[in-house]
Simulated assay, not measured.
Amino acid sequence: MRLQQADEHEAWRAEIREFLEAELPPENAFNPEFDDEPDQWAIAVEFSKKVAAKGWIGLTWPKEYGGRGLSPVANQIFLEELYAADAPMINSVGIFLAAGTILVGGTEEQKQRLLPDIANMRTLWAEGLTEPGSGSDLGSLQTRAVRDGDEWVITGEKAYTSWGPMSDVLYVAARTGSGDGASGAISIFVVDLRSPGVTLHPMRNYGGGVQSSTHLDGVRVPANALIGEEGKGWQYIMRAFYASGTVEPIYAMQEARLRDLVEHCKSIPGKLEDPHVRADLAELADMVQTQRLLAYEIIGDNAHGRQTPWGGGVQQVIAKEYEPLFAQVYDRVLGPTSQLRPASRYAPLGGKPEAWYRQSFANHAGGTSQLKRMVLATRGLGLPR
């Protein structure tokens, strides 16, 4: 099967590439999820604001909220080009999870107040979903929000808060209803990270990025900090994760890395004649194409109003399990020198593959592949939990 896109989509892709060539010098191409030291973060913020100035944040949002009203295909092309260029784009929590929730369930006042600040990169969002005792079982979260007059009082602990120290607000899922279930018991709040009672404890992860343990100790927020309706948080989150029509194009980044690997192999006499190397390169190409086809199946369904019970579960399982596999096969082609860091003059491809391998295991965001398989079993096949 071969994907073919309309002329206007190819013109749109060319426009994005022209922008990236002009605004993203090679030394500024990196992943801010793992390269987030102050100097790097400043570069990422500056670049992201240039993207915002083009009006390219929230491409599928309605125009009245700062979006462009473009199709899911146009949005995917945009994301593919950013990932392929290793563009240091930030605020993914705000652009996708928070904005998706606001668009689906937020009040008109919240849409007018919160979305333009995301579109213009004036407000950076961090995620407050996972908890120490919950992991991928989001429905068992224990953070609680209690109504007190015109305010909500939130108490609990969140784990793995990416970009917490650099963000302005926190997307918080908290229990507002009784019972231990998820539906009808969880609500979503926007919490100013400078509020009294918010404490962040940053820590470095295996990939090199910073994540935080976030403590919410009786944090008071105004009534309008509740996004949408009370008790609808579970539906909002599931809509954001499974039915938003946006697919993170890891495959575009992998394809760019594969091209670099092929060029590296060409520089070594006889490397491409090795049948084992050729088989590994073919396997990497197959991983890229499989993910692309699954991604466009989701986007096509979304564009034509078709929703499957399992949403994007199949694509997400494949993408999560391919990330470390891709890195392993990639390093097998390079050989033992793939373990060398940039400081070594013997490191291939500038020493980047060493970091890529470590970062490939940071694929738990949005739930592990085991959780996604459970979603497929229960929602897709109707099996009991």
Rank of each mutant, 00 (worst) to 15 (best):
K320H: 10
H364Y: 15
W234P: 04
G312P: 02
T101W: 01
T337H: 12
G156M: 10
L97S: 11
S187R: 06
Q110L: 04
W152L: 05
I57K: 08
R373S: 00
A303S: 10
W163C: 04
Q235E: 15
E37V: 11
G233I: 07
S140H: 06
R358K: 14
R13F: 07
S195K: 06
I43S: 08
Y322V: 10
P72Q: 04
S187G: 11
P32Y: 08
W41G: 02
M166V: 14
G245D: 10
A303G: 00
G106L: 01
Q254N: 14
L114H: 08
T176N: 05
M374R: 15
D180M: 13
V277R: 00
T60C: 13
Q254V: 01
D280R: 15
M374C: 12
R259G: 06
N28R: 13
L216E: 07
D192M: 10
L325S: 10
D217H: 13
I102T: 04
G311I: 03
E64K: 12
A52C: 05
R379Y: 12
E323T: 11
A29I: 03
Q76V: 05
Q370K: 14
V169A: 10
L59W: 05
V169L: 02
S178Q: 15
T123Y: 00
R292Q: 13
S267L: 09
E157L: 14
P309W: 09
M121Q: 15
Y65M: 05
F30D: 01
G69Q: 05
A256K: 11
A240K: 03
W356N: 09
E297H: 14
R144G: 04
G100D: 00
A327P: 00
T199W: 00
E15D: 14
N224S: 15
A362I: 11
C265A: 13
D36R: 00
G218H: 06
A327I: 03
K50S: 06
T143F: 07
Y296C: 01
E81A: 09
W152V: 06
K111T: 04
L115M: 03
T155C: 01
G58L: 01
E131I: 09
F30E: 04
L124C: 02
R2I: 14
Q112G: 09
P38A: 03
Q370W: 13
K352D: 14
F47V: 03
L20P: 01
V247E: 12
G207D: 08
C265F: 06
P336R: 10
Q328Y: 12
V333N: 02
E354Y: 12
Y65S: 02
P269D: 07
P348L: 09
L193I: 11
G380A: 04
V45W: 00
P38R: 01
F19N: 06
G106R: 03
G228N: 06
A84E: 03
K63H: 05
A285I: 07
